[in-house]
């Protein structure tokens, strides 16, 4: 989890996000302003993300995953520990704007993050804020709208788009700022199954084609398939971490963190308990079918 020493050669192994003992507390006050309670939203979290990786943070509502996300974008500041975003100290408030430039953020509610009334103007909003010259704004808008497949909708009003399309516009809006990494805070929670697929496909493509680091925050385990690394959070702490396969193999533990294990993984787990020799952490249908085919062949 430490920064590799021999990284500077090709930047591949650089940690774009490096959280060490990161904590965030906030004070709950009653109507008279007296302190009622101090809530620890995140508690001594160590998370690091390598450049170009696709990582997921899983957890149920209130597990602290969104609070963590807001730190990456300097929307919240740590109350303890350190956080480096693209090698900038998040504790230093003079870095705020630069941190926001290097880490873009997509939120849950598609309606409440689109500022303009025309798709292309919304995508241009970020670049305008950071002072990009006019001609370049247009280039960036086109590039980012094409990268999420929304270029044909550039003149549309966001109100007429589906939830999935709105989220793709929001992603384009972040991409137009050309960030090093993008943080998506439950981008699919308010979408229907089609919209969810659409958005997940779009971010995987960005990660592969544009080499953008992706941090996906979600409570849908299916969406984690295909990540390079997964963190599971519960009551403000990182309780599990590893590659998706390792995580998915611990079905009972996942259930105890109130997570929804995909049906295929559950079937595989049940079969394993019944003595069938399926591999650990099966993620997809194809995998399970292959495994079962193999098992039948050896037995007959």
């Amino acid at each position: 989890m430490n920064i590799d020493v021999n990284t500077n050669i090709n930047n591949i192994n650089i940690n774009i996000i490096e959280a060490k003992n990161l904590s965030h507390e906030y004070i709950v006050r009653d109507e008279e302003g007296n302190v009622e309670n101090i809530v620890t939203a995140i508690d001594n979290v160590d998370i690091s993300v390598k450049k170009g990786h696709f990582i997921s943070i899983l957890g149920h509502n209130g597990s602290g995953k969104s609070t963590f996300a807001k730190h990456i974008n300097a929307l919240l500041y740590p109350s303890g520990g350190t956080l480096f975003v693209n090698q900038m100290d998040a504790n230093d408030k003079s870095n705020t704007l630069d941190i926001r430039k290097s880490a873009g953020m997509v939120f849950q509610n598609p309606d409440n993050q689109i500022i303009a009334s025309v798709v292309e103007e919304d995508v241009g909003f970020g670049p305008e804020n950071i002072g990009v010259p006019t001609d370049e704004i247009w280039e960036r808008v086109e590039k980012s709208l094409r990268s999420v497949g929304m270029w044909e909708y550039r003149k549309h009003s966001p109100n007429k788009l589906s939830g999935g399309q709105k989220q793709r516009v929001a992603i384009a809006g972040v991409m137009a700022m050309e960030p090093e990494c993008i943080v998506l805070d439950e981008p699919t929670a308010m979408l229907d199954p089609n919209g969810r697929k659409e958005v997940i496909r779009a971010i995987h493509e960005l990660n592969k084609k544009k080499n953008v680091t992706v941090i996906l925050i979600t409570h849908y385990m299916e969406e984690v398939v295909g990540s390079d690394y997964v963190y599971v959070m519960d009551s403000g702490k990182v309780v599990m971490e590893g590659e998706p396969r390792d995580i998915f193999s611990k079905v009972e533990e996942l259930k105890s963190y109130r997570l929804d294990v995909p049906q295929i993984t559950l079937v595989a787990d049940e079969l394993k308990k019944a003595g069938v020799n399926v591999p650990d952490g099966v993620l997809t249908r194809e995998e399970l079918v292959e495994a079962l085919r193999g098992i039948r062949a050896t037995e007959v």
Binding site: G104, M105, N112, I115, G173
Partner: peptide
């Protein structure tokens, strides 16, 4: 509130 956060996140200043 959400919108303000989203605008800040996109470097509105």
């Amino acid at each position: 509130n959400d919108l303000a956060l989203a605008m800040e996140a996109r470097c509105y200043n």
